[in-house]
């Protein structure tokens, strides 16, 4: 096992299920035999605020926070939030982002406008960017709520972890009645190029 620590940053809007996705990632890495640390701020996360979760794994991990400019993968649940936290990503890092815009309060009330071309701006800094139509793929898998799992599938394809650990973690963390749809959504995400 190399000493290299792999850094993943998950960003989005409170209520999108970011914390659960981060849990599944961490569980997978532990099952694969790595040291894992995960850090996030909750408390206000259910109330529509900006949410960031850091997940790091490797032989030995010290800080639970991804150092600025050292993120290997940015796992974005929403476009503007993904752009906001690009500074955590290293140049040449990978972005997997949900093709979704959620208006923040100032945009909802018409005081500001949602910034244009977020996806393009992310791609400018980071050519290795996969834009995922999470919602429609999830509907195809059987439930719109499985969008996160589609994204997770796409992220999993970009990490060198055996598939069985992902499946085991999903089976452990996702409620039984939603499992079939989520496993399907995961495979759809894994199939994305």
């Amino acid at each position: 096992m190399s000493d290299k620590v792999t850094n993943i940053v998950l960003v989005g809007v409170g209520g999108q299920g970011i914390l659960l996705a981060a849990e599944i990632l961490s569980e997978t890495f532990m099952l694969a035999g790595f040291d894992v640390k995960k850090s996030e701020i909750h408390g206000m996360s259910q109330r529509g605020g900006s949410v960031v979760s850091h997940v790091r794994y490797g032989k030995e991990v010290f800080s639970p926070m991804v150092p600025e400019g050292e993120g290997d993968i940015l796992f974005g649940f929403e476009l503007m939030e993904s752009y906001r936290y690009l500074s955590l990503l290293k140049p040449g890092g990978t972005v997997v982002v949900n093709d979704l815009c959620i208006a923040p309060p100032s945009v909802l009330v018409g005081q500001e406008t949602y910034p244009a071309d977020m996806a393009l701006k992310i791609q400018e800094f980071c050519p290795d960017c996969l834009l995922v139509d999470g919602q429609n793929l999830a509907i195809e898998a059987g439930n719109a709520r499985a969008a996160n799992t589609v994204l997770l599938g796409a992220v999993s394809k970009r990490l060198d972890i055996e598939e069985k650990y992902w499946i085991e973690a999903i089976e452990k963390m996702v409620p039984k009645k939603a499992l079939e749809v989520n496993l399907k959504a995961f495979q759809m995400g894994r199939g994305l190029k």
Partner: peptide, 15 residues
């Protein structure tokens, strides 16, 4: 570390 310069965005406080 080198990092992306991000332009100013609307904030997203909790509500």
């Amino acid at each position: 570390n080198a990092q992306a310069a991000v332009e100013k965005l609307p904030g997203r406080p909790p509500n």
